[in-house]
Amino acid sequence: MTSRSEKARQALMDAAEELYALHGVEAVSNRAITERAGSANHSAVAYHFGTRDGLISALLRRHMDEVGPLRTARIERLDDATDLRALIACWVLPHVHVLRSTPAPAWRARFLFQLRTLPSADTLTREAMADADDPEALTARMSATLGDLPRGILHARAQIAAGVLLGVCAEFERLVALGDQEGSWEEVGVFLIDAIAGMIAAPVSPGGHYDPPRSPLGI
């Protein structure tokens, strides 16, 4: 791929991320993306990505390519005595670090949050995470620190935690864009670790074994 072609491709991805973040995936046409990217070729999305799902897959892979090495490095530093908060940090902090490092104006967190409503989001996310460290490895280590917490409850709470992670980051990104945020991305990360650790380790009441469908969209 030539540098000119790659530049055009990145411009389309940046435009899509912004428009999807602002308006939702279903409300944005490929033509609107090409116009926002400054391209006169209204078939540019089809040329570079094939379909809308191909474009979204590229956006997810771009994010995971940035998150993945940071997560791997954290996991490699873990030891056998690692506690629950350190395990959750391996999941939360690489994601937060990438969002913090995204040049302004940033739309990444809001795009990922909007993506939850897309029917193909789970499939696309699984494909984007295919080469990532196995999330089951972290889940297994969490389970070992939690004693008698049923594995199904852990998975169900992790699904809720994924929504919390995406929602909190999307809202903070929005406030940053408005200049109304209090605190920093680092403080958001610590807040999320504390909140998620508290929820995952909470006692299980009788009748509290609801197990929602599993989704990987907690990237």
Rank of each mutant, 00 (worst) to 15 (best):
A16W: 06
T123G: 12
G163P: 06
P203G: 04
I196A: 07
T123V: 08
C169Q: 09
H155K: 09
A128D: 01
D133Q: 03
N30I: 04
G54E: 13
L55V: 03
I200Q: 00
A195M: 06
E17H: 01
T72K: 14
T72V: 10
D148R: 02
H155M: 06
I56H: 08
L112A: 04
A8K: 11
I75D: 11
Y47W: 12
E26K: 02
G218T: 07
L118M: 10
M13G: 02
Y47F: 10
S29P: 10
A162D: 13
Y47D: 10
G179T: 07
Q159F: 08
E66R: 14
V67Y: 05
V188N: 00
L60H: 06
H63F: 15
R4L: 07
P135Y: 09
T72I: 03
R110K: 06
L149T: 15
A32T: 03
I153T: 11
L78E: 12
G147I: 05
A40W: 07
T145E: 08
L166S: 05
T34W: 03
W185A: 04
N41H: 09
L22V: 10
G163I: 04
A137I: 15
L112Q: 08
L138I: 13
H23A: 02
R100S: 10
T34A: 07
F111K: 00
A21K: 00
M199Y: 15
D80R: 14
L70D: 10
F113D: 13
T145P: 03
V164K: 05
R9A: 15
